[in-house]
Design a protein around this nucleic acid. Structure first.
Lengths: 233, 233
DNA sequence: ACTCGTCTGATTGTCGGACAATCAGACGAG
DNA sequence: CTCGTCTGATTGTCCGACAATCAGACGAGT
């Protein structure tokens, strides 16, 4: 069972190769365009037009659109087409509430989480700090910021919760594509997250949880402001 | 703005019609087959064979399979095909942990949730009680049981958390398709859930949360047993 | 006995074209 | 002002085709 040619643990664990299908690349390209704000929310994503523009068949575009739709960044209206998702106040509230559930669950697991997961949080904070001080683009800054929140969910060590968190992040990113209020507050944001991490390192998880709760509530209102949306009751 | 022909509130709020596409119906039929245990985990879902069997084109089957895949009940191996998902111990642990996060978050919101959401929980419990006493099929029983847990997540009043909960339920249902240990414990299960609801009605949400936590941990071990899987460390 | 090429059959991934069903908007009759 | 009808555009679904990829068999060489 442990012959030299069929060893249980391969010595090539460090090797990997990305298997990207055409559909994946199309979806990736569309995501990039959405996050960079090249496509306004509400813009129709016509299958034929996209197929000709990108140089692939309609089937492939259609499948890629299906991916975007269940990530939430695009919306399908049956028999009418796929559109770039427009965030309404209810959606914003829903997204933020969902993030709160996931991230607070992660924070509460700080003590029981693996060392790797905790390190991921620390590294994410460092990355964000660096990005805030250097001349990073809007997209890079928000990516780093979202990376922190992603790492908090990572404390749950659950793939399924992580993939939901990613979908939520994508929606947030979509909403923030055209907003530039970010850099202004970036130093405050860094301080806020550092404070959160300090509470965690000290072992005061409950304080960290309520801190995070407030952080996300604030994020919700400022996001509604940024999108010029009315605050829901 | 409130003319007689463009009234803000239509008087036809009670009317609705299900717009089902062919893809949806194919996916639904496949789901039914999976949940009824007609298709063992690991079974390959060949596109051509399914297309001929159901009487639709390969494109349609392919799209339906895509739906099942990101619900988690089927798994795609690139260039190899789609298979009925086989649950390994890690997946079971992941699913149960995710459910715990969502449902406990719901329970903690009991006091702040809407009356409708609370009523949904009460009704779900009644449905399960009735199903346990009458001669309901395995599938109906588990459906009613999962309905309770679904309603707990409903307390968060978040569509996104709900849709994740549905996906998790689908995976659980898939795992339990071939297991018959359910009816035996059904009366115990009813009692357990009733106790949970009593704690909630009394306002003791924290006790309810820990009760639910234990319930789900027990569910995980008994599910691993039922599937003849080793318990993960 | 074990490894390594090669072949082969089956299946997916992607393509292109085709058509009915459906929808939004314009247009005209009552 | 409402109600049919028409029209053009787009999707939903179907069909047929082909290269790319994979698993397994088979045989040659060491």
């Amino acid at each position: 069972m442990a012959g030299p040619t069929a060893a249980g643990d391969s010595p090539f664990g460090s090797l990997s190769l990305e298997h990207s299908s055409t559909v994946d690349r199309v979806a990736g390209e569309l995501r990039r365009a959405l996050f960079d704000g090249e496509l306004e929310p509400g813009t129709p994503l016509r299958e034929i037009a996209l197929a000709e523009a990108i140089g692939v068949s309609r089937s492939t575009v259609r499948e890629a659109l299906g991916l975007l739709v269940n990530e939430g960044v695009a919306t399908r209206e049956p028999n009418r087409g796929v559109f770039v998702t427009e965030l309404d106040p209810d959606s914003v509230r829903d997204v933020c509430r969902s993030r709160a559930v996931l991230e607070i669950a992660g924070v509460r697991r700080w003590a029981t989480a693996s060392e790797a997961a905790r390190d991921a949080v620390r590294r994410a904070l460092v990355d964000f700090t660096v990005a805030a001080q250097s001349d990073a683009s809007r997209a890079e800054l928000t990516a780093a910021h979202l990376g922190i929140h992603r790492s908090l969910v990572g404390l749950t060590e659950s793939q399924r919760l992580m993939s939901l968190a990613d979908a939520l992040s994508a929606e947030v990113r979509l909403g923030l594509a055209k907003v530039d209020r970010i850099r202004r507050n970036s130093t405050d944001q860094v301080a806020s997250h550092r404070a959160l991490l300090n509470l965690l390192e000290r072992g005061d998880t409950e304080a960290a949880a309520t801190e995070l709760q407030h952080h996300l509530e604030h994020a919700e209102t400022s996001m509604l402001d940024a999108l010029h949306l009315p605050h829901s009751t």
